[in-house]
């Protein structure tokens, strides 16, 4: 019984750690470009800063939609898949990501590890990984042994 509680606690803590940097209030790209030090506050109270060069790159790619693009872009990890896959669900964000990666535009956009590495290199501060507890439910409760 003790181990049960420990595992539950660890899972909860892990989810909290992974999702602790979710922004308490997201900002639009245009808004961030106007700021001297573009940043958002996270749920844990930390400051997440954006690199200006990356914001400018995003502005160049999406142009007029800068007011609509909310940052940071959330890449939702799907643990239920065999290989770690991220999914981006917002229309404008998928437009930006697909242009940067040079792939076909689709919503939702599935991003694979190799593409995640490229995204990290090009717009590392604009993206954040989140793990949704909902997707965890997809992992079967009872497996056949």
């Amino acid at each position: 019984m003790g181990e049960d509680k420990t595992l539950e606690y660890l899972l909860e803590r892990e989810l909290r750690v992974v999702n602790s940097y979710v922004a308490s209030k997201r900002k639009s790209l245009a808004e961030l470009l106007r700021e001297e030090h573009p940043h958002v506050l996270t749920l844990s109270g930390d400051v997440h800063m954006f690199r200006k060069s990356e914001l400018i790159l995003a502005k160049e790619v999406i142009g007029e939609d800068a007011e609509k693009l909310m940052l940071p872009i959330y890449v939702e990890l799907i643990p239920a898949q065999t290989t770690t896959t991220g999914v981006i669900r917002e229309e404008i964000a998928t437009k930006l990501v697909s242009t940067i990666l040079g792939i076909n535009h689709a919503t939702p956009l599935y991003v694979y590890p190799i593409q995640l590495a490229e995204l990290r290199r090009k717009i590392g501060t604009l993206i954040q990984y989140v793990v949704s507890p909902e997707t965890l439910k997809e992992i079967g409760d009872f497996e056949e042994i």
């Binding site: 595992l7 990890l77 995640l116 990290r120 793990v131 497996e143």
Partner: peptide
């Protein structure tokens, strides 16, 4: 009870494994 515990352990394993993958990618980069 054990099956429930196994399910939790598997979930935790997946979350940690994903985090490890992201961190390893970051480390290599």
């Amino acid at each position: 009870r054990l099956r429930r515990r196994l399910a939790t352990a598997r979930r935790l394993h997946r979350v940690l494994r994903d985090r490890l993958l992201i961190l390893t990618q970051e480390l290599v980069a």
